[in-house]
Amino acid sequence: MATLLHPLALIGRNTLALLAAIGRVAMFLGATISHMVRPPFYLKELWQAILNVGYFSLPVVGLTAIFTGGALALQIYSGGSRFNAEAVVPQIVAIGMVRELGPVLVGLMIAARVTSSVAAEIATMKVTEQIDALVTLSTHPMKYLTVPRVLAALITVPALVAVGDVIGVMGGFLVATERLGFNPAAYLQNTWNFLETLDIVSSLVKGAAFGFIAALMGCYYGMNSGRGAQGVGRATKLSVVAAAVLILAANFLLTQAFFSV
């Protein structure tokens, strides 16, 4: 009987652990927002974080977007040709990039690049007592470490998404005009006429949400890291996994909110 009940106990234990984790993340989120709106504000740390999260992510975002846009154009052309719809390449590349792939790929790249480094940095600071040192120097770690990073992601990731959208569309444009024989002027005209304000707004809102999630997860797992090298490694891994899964889940919910009919 005991062995029979074991799987149930396992499910129960994991459910409780999951609920506890959700509660802890929610409390961390509340603390982050409450520290975000109350002084002191560390502007130098915010500027540093904006450079790290935003500016230095530009190359990876650009590369990701241009290859994805190019591949998308090829796929739509070959798929569309099955029912004589090759002509829709500009429209589908635009909608696919702006509504979905731009924000999602940028979000995942930020999870890989920023969440991991934030988690590893803060976790190492915790393990080497630098967080305790901050407190004894009358500086709140949430204000000094978490708020600048989360705020920086909230501000810069939408901008990165905008850049990614444009470069992605350009990737599609290059492939379509160079390889597939589309007329450049007509391609751009079709893209521009087809996109609606809501497509762009949804893209930027997704960017802000994904950036927030990515930075928050990095800070949360960093601050709650276990001891030693193993603790730092585990915190980093968990932060990236959590950020990626939450970004994809949030993407579904936001898509549903913006576009469900």
Partner: peptide, 30 residues
Amino acid sequence: LARFGMLFQGGALFDSLPVWQNVAFRLLRG
């Protein structure tokens, strides 16, 4: 906390800041 100073076991210096900003940390903010 302004009444206290603490020397940590491993030093716990902030490695993103140069030495003088570590030493003057409390004098640069708050």
